[in-house]
Amino acid sequence: MDTLMTVRVFCAVAELKSFTAAAERLGVSPAMASKHVMQLEERLSVRLLNRTSRHVSLTENGALYFEQARRMLEGLDELEAGISQTAVAPKGQLRLTAPVWMAGPLFASLLADYRARYPDVTLEVDLSGRLVNLVEDGFDLALRVTASPDPGLIARTIAEAPFYLVASRKFLDNRGLPTSLDELQGAPLVAYSLVHGDGVVAHETEKGRRTIKFTPVLLSSNETLMYHACLEGMGFAFLPTWMISDDLAAGRLECVFPDRLFFAGRLLAVYPTRKYLTAKVRSFLDFVVRDPRLKQSLHA
C-alpha cells in the first residue's frame, strides 16, 4: 500500500471520527480505509484507534501520531503548492492559545469574522492562562503579551498592549486618590502571581530605577478574577486596556499615574520556526495583524 495514502487515511479517520466519512473524503471504500489503518497499526505495533460499532476515537498513541502526522501532511501540501505555484485554501484545525483576558465579545467577534471568511478552518482556542510549549503541546500559534519573546520562536507584533495601574472608584473614595508614588508603599495590590507575586513594582524616575513595595492581598494568574476583585475594591491592579476600556470610560475604574506606572507590553503572534507556514496559520496571522479592532481596543 501507498504509505503516504495510509497516513492520509488515518488522519482523515481521526479528524472525522468515522471510516465512512474519511472514505468519502478520499474517494476510497470504507473497507479500504479500514485496511489502511489496520496496516498502519501493524507496522507500528500499536493500536491507534479505539473502534466500536458507533464510535471511533484516538488512543493515547494515536493522538500523538495524529498530531505529528497532521503537521507533516500540512507541510507537504504547502511545499507542493509552493513549487507548483498553486494556492492552498486554509483548512483543518487551528490550535491557538491566548491570554485569559481575551475571553470577551471583541475576540469572539474577531474569531467569528475569521471563520466566516475561512469556513474550512476549525478553531480550537485555549484560554487556560498556562504558558504552553507550542511544539510539545501541539499548538499552531500563540497570542502573548511580552516584552521579550522566546528567541526560539518567531514573533509578529499585532499591537501595543499596555497594562495600567487601576483602582475602582469605590476603593479610591474610601482610601483617597494618591498624589505621589510614595503613597503607594504598602498599598493593597491584586497581583498577577507570575509577575508581581512579591508586590514589588519597578519604575523609572529622573534619578534612576526605583521600586514600590505593595502588599499583595490576592495573588492569581487569572486576569479575569483580578479584574473583578479590583472592581470590588480589593486594591490596585495592573490590567490590560482590552479589559478595562469600558470601565475607564464609565468611571468604574480609574488609572493611577498612567504616565509613570504601566507595563508597555506588546501583543505578539508567536509560532514555531518553520520554513513553510500552513495556509491556516498564515491566513490567521494576516487577519489579526490587519484587523483594526485589536489596535483600537488595546489602548486606553
Rank of each mutant, 00 (worst) to 15 (best):
L4N: 06
M5Q: 13
R8Q: 15
A12E: 11
E15W: 11
F19C: 02
A22C: 04
L26F: 04
G27Y: 04
V28E: 01
S29I: 07
P30G: 10
A31T: 12
M32Y: 14
A33R: 03
K35A: 12
K35L: 13
H36P: 01
V37D: 04
V37H: 05
R43T: 13
R47D: 04
R51D: 03
T52M: 04
R54D: 07
H55P: 00
V56K: 03
G62E: 02
F66H: 13
E67A: 15
R71N: 12
R71K: 13
L76Q: 11
I83P: 01
Q85E: 15
T86S: 08
T86W: 06
T86D: 02
K91I: 00
L94W: 12
L96T: 07
P99M: 05
G104H: 03
F107W: 13
L111D: 05
R115L: 13
A116Q: 15
L123V: 08
L123E: 09
S128V: 08
G129H: 09
L131M: 04
L131S: 11
V132C: 00
D140S: 02
D140H: 15
L141Y: 03
L141P: 03
L143Q: 01
S148Q: 12
P149I: 02
G152K: 06
L153Y: 12
I154Y: 00
I158R: 00
A161E: 05
Y164A: 07
A167F: 10
S168I: 09
R169M: 10
K170V: 15
L172S: 12
L181S: 01
L181W: 04
L181Q: 03
Q185G: 00
V195S: 12
H196P: 01
G197F: 13
E206A: 10
I212F: 05
F214V: 06
F214L: 07
P216K: 06
V217N: 06
L218M: 13
N222R: 12
E223M: 10
A229R: 13
C230G: 04
W242I: 12
L248G: 04
A249W: 02
A250R: 15
A250L: 11
G251L: 08
E254W: 07
F257V: 05
P258H: 08
A264H: 09
R266T: 15
A269H: 03
R274M: 08
K275L: 14
Y276C: 02
T278E: 00
K280M: 10
K280E: 09
S283L: 08
F287D: 05
R290E: 15
L294P: 06
K295A: 15
K295N: 08
K295E: 14
